[in-house]
Design a protein around this nucleic acid. Sequence first.
DNA 1: TAACACATGTAACAAGTTACATGATTAA
DNA 2: TTAATCATGTAACTTGTTACATGTGTTA
Lengths: 189, 189
Amino acid sequence: MELSRTAAVILGMLNLGLRTGYEIKSTVDHSTRFFWAASYGQIYPELARLEEAGLVRSERVEGDARGSKAYELTPDGERALRDWLSSEEPLHHELRHEGLLKLFFFNAIEPEQRLRQLRLMRSEHERVLGELRQVERTLAEKDDPGFPAEVLQMGLEYQAFVIDWCARLERRLAKEAKAAETATRAKGR
Amino acid sequence: MELSRTAAVILGMLNLGLRTGYEIKSTVDHSTRFFWAASYGQIYPELARLEEAGLVRSERVEGDARGSKAYELTPDGERALRDWLSSEEPLHHELRHEGLLKLFFFNAIEPEQRLRQLRLMRSEHERVLGELRQVERTLAEKDDPGFPAEVLQMGLEYQAFVIDWCARLERRLAKEAKAAETATRAKGR
DNA sequence: TAACACATGTAACAAGTTACATGATTAA
DNA sequence: TTAATCATGTAACTTGTTACATGTGTTA
């Protein structure tokens, strides 16, 4: 049984004790989202497919007029989750980073513009770092089982790494831009 | 004029002096692919759309029976490229990392399986690091203008960072697995 | 003469996002 | 009573991948 990655996220979340599609979505949004996102448009149809395939089962929550459905793993679902977790198939790994893409073509714009873009890139990573720190604080408070410390730590270190890399390159570009300016001014005299 | 990212890649590559769709694709494959991939199924239709929009123009290469089309930027295309490069719009940044996703759900499998998965994850990053080193060597030889040293360096450092992180966690998990095993054996006696 | 690189293109499919519709519950 | 949160779901759209069809040029 080849599991789609969305299916894997769902089974994993159900295994952690989450119950509704809504719960899964909001947990994803402050945990796996940083390295694997999922939208309602994926989650609800996938839950239906998984039930069809017998990997999960659901029941309406009694006395809940909102029509909540509580899902749980079936034995087949648990097996499918473990199979995916143990599979030796190549791991999907994909990065889409518009900041780096721009950097690649930096020769087409002026040094001052380059510096601006680099600062923008750094500030966005700083925002994400801030979000992760917020997650860290929230987790420390209510001892959530749902975010292994190692993975969160990895996220924090990754953001810090990129931020540091940006800062280093900014210093270099600033120096170069200044040198270029000085040269221009000397020439202008 | 809102440029799709694929369009931006194409304009950037044409600005670097590449001419055909094929050339763009193969250059992407050993350069931007590491942080922004593109397939033929995106490149050829996008080239046609860009020509329609007047951002690029093409001519058939004379005496080439393969039907090669040489593209170049129009002034509008150059402007669109610079506009995108200077835009203050939030930068798209997306990571999809199945290894980290598995790690997130590691409690569902045995310690030895966890170690196996972590090693698999590290080995894939080592493969990518190897590819980047190969790119580095090729570049050093033929002084290609098309891969800014900073961006390549970033790729190398990023891979090294993840590999190191994996190695550290592997050591921890191995220690824990051993301790668990010893405990089991002691109990078994 | 075979394999590989050059070259263009498309059709079918898979994956993912966004925006909307709908309504209940809870806390300020 | 109003805003936020809980809750399910879908339709339209965008993006991206894979596999195929087709053919030329070059090199071992």
